[in-house]
Design a protein around this nucleic acid. Structure first.
Length: 254
DNA sequence: AAATTTGTCAACCGCCCCTTC
DNA sequence: AGAAGGGGCGGTTGACAAATT
């Protein structure tokens, strides 16, 4: 019994994608859209596993990808989001438009981990390593005992914010009970946008709150260019983060 | 210049969750 | 209600490039 394999492995290519395969995949998705990944390879004339096609598209071929080096602002956002969410790369990626979970995961493992270690921080817990007093971000340096507790499976979807956390980490609200507005007119779902879908998914099992929540504000970016919650006329519309324009920087000054 | 080490990142693997029947 | 299928996620691997010896 058991499950059938996701594809016929004997007749599929593996390894690096060729330009021709890329072109085939792009052309197919352009004309048919993203659909059933399982049947896509055959339909597109590709000798690839459907999962492989999906991964290639999402991580490399998608037109809205940002590419290029991570900015300092993105660094800080990743660190803060990781402190909140743990290794939930897809959720973190959802707050960084143009970045993929794979890209962020790689970046974390190759750069940020080392950066945190050099600052005397445990990359997993964000707590100071033995006897260390260093902190990850300039803002965190202002709260030398602040510790962000990563979400674990037990408390995922529940509020993890405490008064103690708020005292320790004034600029980083750890309340993860981000949720859909229960008073949303006609029960309309959160609006479009990359950033909203992940958040909605992350909270789909949690209780509903009555206040719209801006993740930017929660992460201490409320006065930055990134945060546009103040300017959104419809308070029912969730815009956790606005994509940075090319070369745009977050203004930390408050 | 060649050999070795280290770093980076695209891609794969296996598991889990959600949806459908 | 439960099994099966499909998509998505996180961890890991391996190929390649760059740096060092």
């Amino acid at each position: 019994m058991g499950r059938s394999p996701c594809c016929e492995k004997a007749h599929t290519n593996k390894g690096a994608w060729t330009k021709e395969e890329d072109q085939r995949l792009i052309a197919y998705i352009k004309s048919h859209g993203e659909g059933c990944w399982r049947s896509l390879p055959k339909a597109a004339g590709l000798l690839r596993c459907g999962k492989s096609c999906r991964l290639r598209w999402i991580n490399y071929l998608r037109p809205d990808l940002k590419r290029g080096n991570f900015t300092e602002e993105e660094d800080e956002l990743i660190i803060k989001l990781h402190a909140l969410l743990g290794n939930k790369w897809s959720l973190i990626a959802g707050r960084l438009p143009g970045r993929t979970d794979n890209e962020i995961k790689n970046y974390w493992n190759t750069h940020i981990k080392r950066k945190l270690l050099s600052q005397g921080l445990d990359p997993q817990t964000h707590r100071p390593l033995q006897g260390g007093a260093a902190f990850a971000t300039p803002q965190q340096q202002e709260a030398p005992t602040a510790i962000a507790k990563p979400v674990n499976s037990a408390d995922e979807g529940q509020s993890c914010s405490t008064n103690l956390d708020e005292d320790r980490f004034p600029d980083l609200n750890l309340d993860l009970s981000i949720s859909l507005p229960c008073h949303s007119p006609k029960g309309s779902p959160p609006s479009e946008g990359l950033a909203t879908t992940a958040a909605a998914a992350a909270t789909s099992r949690s209780s509903y709150s009555t206040q719209p929540i801006c993740l930017c504000c929660h992460l201490g970016f409320q006065s930055s260019e990134v945060c546009s919650c103040q300017t959104i006329p419809n308070s029912h519309v969730y815009r956790y983060i606005r994509p940075l324009e090319e070369g745009q920087r977050i203004n930390y000054s408050s």
